[in-house]
């Protein structure tokens, strides 16, 4: 009972604190912007812990954060092995191959307006489909190891990346192209000095979307068959054994890896597209 009361009081107190900060005189400062979401996140974790203890929720349904943290700390070697298998071998290599080939394809079809008009609607259509369904097929073709996971990732990231790059390459306006024309610039000069830099915001948009897709693809593909390591494998087997603390530890790894991956791409974007209005704000 005391845990539940504590949860309610803690929730009310931190919510009051957050309202006070958000409506107070410091709301616009950088510190407040950082503090409010952090306080909210801490509140969620504390309330979770208190409610799980107070209501005596069995750990096969929802383990408390402290148990997850303990499990995380004791099984770092396993988690690291799974991380390498799924993220570094599966997701990352698939991401590089998929985004790279989509980029090259986009530059190639950019030369032909006919192909552009034909491929863009088809690409847009395919990008909206449940591509994750190709996972069982690709697992069958490429075997259980990370190659099949990389293949799923390639298929998943290819079309969003292709569509974004083609749109980006069309982002220059007539005046800029005319200017290059008056300089008598060759195709490659126009591409490297005007159109690729102008396409960067759209390209990075595609790259950022692809980070999430890559991790999802690599994890879900492991549900269809994998060697005895990997994040998706660990999640599905530990769920079967009701070892939910390990599942949550694995999810924590996935969340950290996903955010870090996205953060790295976003940081590179900031360096490359510093001139764009969205980065100056």
């Amino acid at each position: 009972m005391i845990w539940i009361a504590f949860a309610i009081v803690f929730w009310a107190a931190t919510w009051g604190l957050n309202s006070w900060i958000a409506n107070g005189p410091f709301a616009a400062t950088r510190a407040a912007r950082l503090a409010v979401p952090v306080i909210f996140g801490v509140t969620i974790i504390v309330v979770w812990e208190a409610l799980v203890r107070g209501l005596a929720v069995p750990s096969v349904i929802l383990p408390p954060p402290s148990a997850i943290a303990a499990k995380f700390a004791t099984s770092i070697p396993t988690l690291w092995e799974d991380f390498v298998q799924t993220f570094v071998k599966g997701a990352l290599s698939g991401y590089l191959i998929g985004c790279g080939s989509a980029f090259v394809t986009a530059v190639l079809i950019d030369r032909s307006p006919f192909l552009q008009r034909g491929l863009l609607p088809v690409g847009n259509f395919i990008a909206a489909l449940p591509i994750i369904g190709t996972a069982p097929i690709l697992v069958m073709w490429f075997g259980f190891d990370w190659h099949s996971k990389a293949a799923v990732v390639v298929v998943m990231v290819f079309f969003p990346m292709l569509v974004n790059t083609v749109q980006g390459l069309a982002a220059t306006d007539a005046m800029q192209r005319d200017l290059m024309h008056t300089y008598s610039a060759s195709y490659w000069q126009r591409l490297l000095k005007l159109r690729l830099p102008a396409a960067m915001p759209a390209i990075f948009n595609g790259l950022k979307i692809a980070t999430t897709l890559a991790l999802i693809g690599a994890i879900v593909a492991e549900f269809f068959g994998s060697p005895i390591k990997g994040m998706g494998f660990r999640i599905s087997t530990e769920v079967g054994r009701l070892g939910l603390d390990m599942v949550w530890a694995e999810i924590t790894v996935a969340a950290l890896a996903g955010s870090a991956f996205y953060g790295i791409v976003a940081t590179i974007e900031k360096g490359v597209t510093f001139w764009h209005p969205s980065q100056r704000g």
Binding site: T211, T212, I216
Partner: peptide, 10 residues
């Protein structure tokens, strides 16, 4: 940015 789909089995 988090692969939410991973928690589906759970």
């Amino acid at each position: 940015t988090i692969p939410i789909l991973a928690i589906a089995p759970m």
